[in-house]
Write a protein that binds this DNA or RNA. Structure first.
Lengths: 97, 97
DNA sequence: CATATAGTTATACAACTTTCAAACTATTAC
DNA sequence: GTAATAGTTTGAAAGTTGTATAACTATATG
């Protein structure tokens, strides 16, 4: 099945590009992608050098742009990339990152 | 020859994504791409519904993000997409637009 | 030269973004 | 229950962005 995209998706594209237009969010995406083990937001903050509230803020923006999904286990939260979104709107991007 | 990308390009990616994170600039890109004949900034403004100073502003942002190149002929200016940039950083994106 | 046309630049303003700190909620462990 | 840990939300401050208007430069034409 082929996906039909158009002007109607521009609002979604804008949200997505805004989410990607930040060095720290690119770092987050790269890190999520390269790490197999699950990781907490705290881990992310430590690695990227951000306050936990800031990690939370950035993850929310990525989530609202459908770029990541999040699962919870106990107190911890784990983020995964939404490969479907990348595939539909930015095929080939992740491999270039 | 394969292109080596990395964190070092993140500033460039951010500039590019910021440039793409605007409905009117997406329209501009789509229009430039679909039109074979050369077109003036005035044309763009009329089609997209923008003041000429606004077209100038948006084209500058696209230009500074290496997403378009511009040529001049008399009083007119013509914009073309920089397929090389799209190919390197967003392979497959233009076809999804 | 004067005038018209195409595009640029400067300014001001409102709306939005990122960061930080502090207060908050939710889960775990004792 | 209390205390500790993980993450969220809120509000303020500083910075950025998009739009509109008006003044500007550059090219073309008579």
């Amino acid at each position: 099945m082929t996906i039909k995209l158009s002007r109607d998706d521009d609002e979604k594209r804008v949200k997505m590009f805004k989410a990607l237009a930040e060095v720290k969010r690119l770092e987050i995406i790269r890190y999520i992608r390269q790490t197999d083990r699950e990781m907490t937001c705290g881990d992310l903050g430590e690695i990227i050098g951000m306050d936990k509230s800031n990690v939370s803020y950035h993850l929310k923006i990525l989530y609202e742009a459908d770029l990541v999904k999040v699962s919870r286990s106990g107190q911890n939260k784990f983020a995964q990339l939404r490969e479907d979104t990348f595939q539909t709107f930015l095929p080939g991007f992740l491999d270039s990152l």
